[in-house]
Structures are given as structure tokens and as C-alpha cells.
Amino acid sequence: MTSLPVFFIIGAYLLGSVSSAIVVTRVFTRQDIRTQGSGNPGATNVYRVAGKKAAAIVFLFDALKGALPVYLGFLYGLEPLVLSAVAISACLGHIFPIFYKFKGGKGVATAIGAIFPIHWGLTLCLLSTWTIVFFVSRISSLAAVVSLTMAPIYTYIFKPDFTLPVLLLCLIILLKHKSNLISLVRHQESSFRKRNK
């Protein structure tokens, strides 16, 4: 049994390292998403470059990268601490993918997917927070930052045992949003409202 947690942690990282943004954008546009738009291989940039359908596919796959290993871990009876490590590993794979020179996306969709098997109510709160903030501001990064900030609080309400791992995961992803945070403070962050005017 001691090898099972290691298998799940490594498997989650490798699955997380598969970049759907790169693959899907090449299928839809024959372009490399890393050289288009913001250069970030994530659903938001895919939306800008390849459209809604491509972005939806990327978001779904990125979320599944987090959800699948954690859900399977539940089925195999892994302890909460190991499940937390599996979730974080999947997100680290997305952020630092071994298949793409350790340069990946920001991990929001994968984190939401990884949190989903922990408690559906937690995921619903996160998605609702993201949707409300985005609807009001039309700024994807702001919606992500607010959702990540609230995630440990929601986790404490629904599944207190996972609060610390979720806090750690959110801090990692927030660090990946450093440039977005600076732009938000300077009121320079890209808005979908501005692009659509």
C-alpha cells in the first residue's frame, strides 16, 4: 500500500502536465497559444485566441486533470493528507509541466477540479464566486483572485480537514497571478468589457 500514494501523486503530476490549451488551440487555429495573446496556456487566453468552444473544452479538460486523480484517490481510500498531496501535485503539473519545459498555466481550473471531489458545495461556492465577480467586473483574473482568496474559508465551512492544503494550493496559484495582481492594483488589467466595446 505504501507505493499507492506515490503512484497517485506522480500520476496526478503527469496528468496535470498535459496542456489542453496548447493541444486544443493547435487543433482549432494551428497556432501556439504560448505565442498568442497573453502567452498563458489557459482557458481565458484560449477564449481570446480560439473562441468560446475551444476555451470551454480547455476549461473542462483542465478541471478533469484535477478532479480525476483526487476522485480515484477517494475510491481507493487514500487518507486526506495524501489526497491533498494528489490535488496539489495535479495543479503543480499544470503550472510546471514536465512536457513543456516547466512553463504552464496558472492552475485555476485544475484547482477547482481538484477541489470538486472534496465537496460539491465547496465547488459550487467557488464557481458562484468566480461567476459573480466576473459578471460585475468582466476581469477574469480578478474573479480568479477573489475565488482563491475565499477558497480556504469555504473549505473550512464544508471540509475543515482540508483547509490547510487548500490554503497552500491557493497561495501557490496566487503567486502565479503576481503580474495580474500588479496590473489590478494599477488598473491596467485586461477586461472583456473593454475588448468588446
Rank of each mutant, 00 (worst) to 15 (best):
I118D: 02
G51E: 11
G39F: 09
A114R: 04
I88V: 15
L148N: 00
S137L: 06
Y47V: 03
C125M: 15
E189Y: 09
S190M: 11
L126N: 05
L81S: 14
L78Q: 05
A63G: 13
T35Q: 15
F8C: 05
D32H: 10
E189T: 09
L92R: 01
V49P: 01
K194N: 13
P117I: 07
P117M: 05
L148H: 00
F74A: 05
W120V: 13
L15C: 11
R193V: 08
L127Q: 05
I112W: 05
K194D: 12
V108S: 02
L148V: 00
F116Q: 03
L171G: 12
R26G: 14
K197C: 09
Y13W: 10
V86E: 00
L171I: 14
I10F: 13
F116C: 09
L169D: 00
G42D: 02
H94I: 07
L175M: 14
I182W: 02
D32Y: 10
K178T: 12
P152F: 05
I115F: 11
L81Q: 15
R186H: 14
S141M: 04
A12N: 06
F135K: 12
A109C: 06
Q31C: 10
M1W: 11
A151P: 01
A63V: 08
I157K: 05
R34N: 08
V24L: 08
F8A: 06
W120I: 14
I10T: 12
L124V: 15
C91M: 14
G42N: 01
K103T: 12
V185H: 12
T44H: 03
S183C: 11
V58M: 06
I57D: 04
F74Q: 13
Q36E: 14
P117Q: 07
I118L: 14
S38F: 08
K65E: 06
K53W: 13
M1H: 13
P5E: 08
T2H: 13
S140H: 06
L83A: 10
I173E: 01
G113C: 08
F102D: 02
T155L: 00
N40K: 05
I118C: 05
L15M: 15
G66S: 03
I57R: 02
V145N: 02
